[in-house]
Design a binder for these strands. Sequence first.
DNA 1: TAGTGGTCTAGACCACAGC
DNA 2: CTGTGGTCTAGACCACTAT
Lengths: 253, 253
Amino acid sequence: MIDKASGVPAYRQLADVLRGRVRTAGYAPGSQIPSERDLVAEFGVSRPTVRQAIELLRNEGVLLAEHGRGIFVRPIPTVQRLARTRLSREARERNQGTFLGDAAAGGWEPSVSVRIHVEPANQRVADLLHLSPGAEVCVRDRLMRADGNPVQLATSRLPREITRGTAIEQVDTGQGGVYARLEEAGHRLGHFEELVSARQPTPEERSSLQLTPGIPVLTITRVAIADGGYPVEVNDMVLSAERYQLHYVLPAE
Amino acid sequence: MIDKASGVPAYRQLADVLRGRVRTAGYAPGSQIPSERDLVAEFGVSRPTVRQAIELLRNEGVLLAEHGRGIFVRPIPTVQRLARTRLSREARERNQGTFLGDAAAGGWEPSVSVRIHVEPANQRVADLLHLSPGAEVCVRDRLMRADGNPVQLATSRLPREITRGTAIEQVDTGQGGVYARLEEAGHRLGHFEELVSARQPTPEERSSLQLTPGIPVLTITRVAIADGGYPVEVNDMVLSAERYQLHYVLPAE
DNA sequence: TAGTGGTCTAGACCACAGC
DNA sequence: CTGTGGTCTAGACCACTAT
């Protein structure tokens, strides 16, 4: 099976064979594949070489290793669609915030841990909020769970000038959440801008979100812009790319 | 530096030290770090252990190895912002398509290779286009380049029923691109839906897009919906997450 | 030619899961 | 207890880059 004279490294050839077996469902999703030592015998290569091939496929998100149990084909995950239309005023007024709206739509039980503090704005935050670097911002650091499982990290930053004395600086922001309190304070929201990208998680994110290796995270930076055209909030979100799909609707005009 | 009795694997401890040096700019972006053999001497571990630590950081996108040259701190990449507002009719009428519009905005030289064929719709495509599985679809397979560098893969599928006899089945679709030809054929566009996620690239995508290991791809599935509410095109796009940021604007109402 | 990262080996011991 | 994956070693040879 492995051609050592082909110029292609043995571990890549082996990874190709195993990936092929997964794709053609020779190895079914969720099922256990042969142990490393079995593969050593089957393909006539050393155990480190087998491990290198498996490592490659784990990083591609094809395989999943469980210590003491075995190696498995990664089961097809259930995906949550995050509809970005939930930022509408009407939707905001019905619930505590966008996360709770998504939970209602997805049929899972939401819970949120919040930590609040005040810090000086760094260069990036100052630029996004049109503040001078070092100006005070109120920081709402949140970990969202779905049915108890951590699924999303979110860090909102708002100018302290706006939040001082409001429920935004409280753990419980009340009906309608932060955005409702902003509008009550006279900052009527005009639109949101979202910057979406993806990357490998940091070790901290990997443990907070209980991510399996090989799964990247989606990053969303959302800036809320008030009717006057000035920014009032920047929200940095980190989501497991395995579990989330973002849904945007764009007009053709 | 490495505490072998701590319970934390040596390669993780080493990775933590090196990551720390990169974060605090002890190792500057783009600069070369000590060779594997130097690190073996510095930390008193074997070369495979050093390689394991470096492999981890490469997959996190922190380091970059160049065969025969050395290991480098990954330089901060330049990001292209893909403004999804460019789908407006006015913008479409000015140019050949959204990719060319993004190029004009970003100031780079665009080029596109196109391959066209007809195939039966699979289950997913049939669902998205409201067709029966097996119905013929016209497939436009494209590789987009910016200044000669491959940056994006896109595969559009349209019902054959709609494209038969139109320039959509030609390599050059003419002024305004596919969307202009669709409107000429009487399919006035109502809105677009985009589903965004991320994952590790397949080996094929990695070579087509010349991706460096450890960098995930952004995936966008865009469905164009005509005024009558029926879908006319599904476009699957794959972009390097290192090079792209998606920009969405959402109304607050 | 010297130095670099890339591949591969044979073996050892540890930690975890499950019977 | 057995079998699994996880870690680590000491060394060998290859392929690439630069001088």
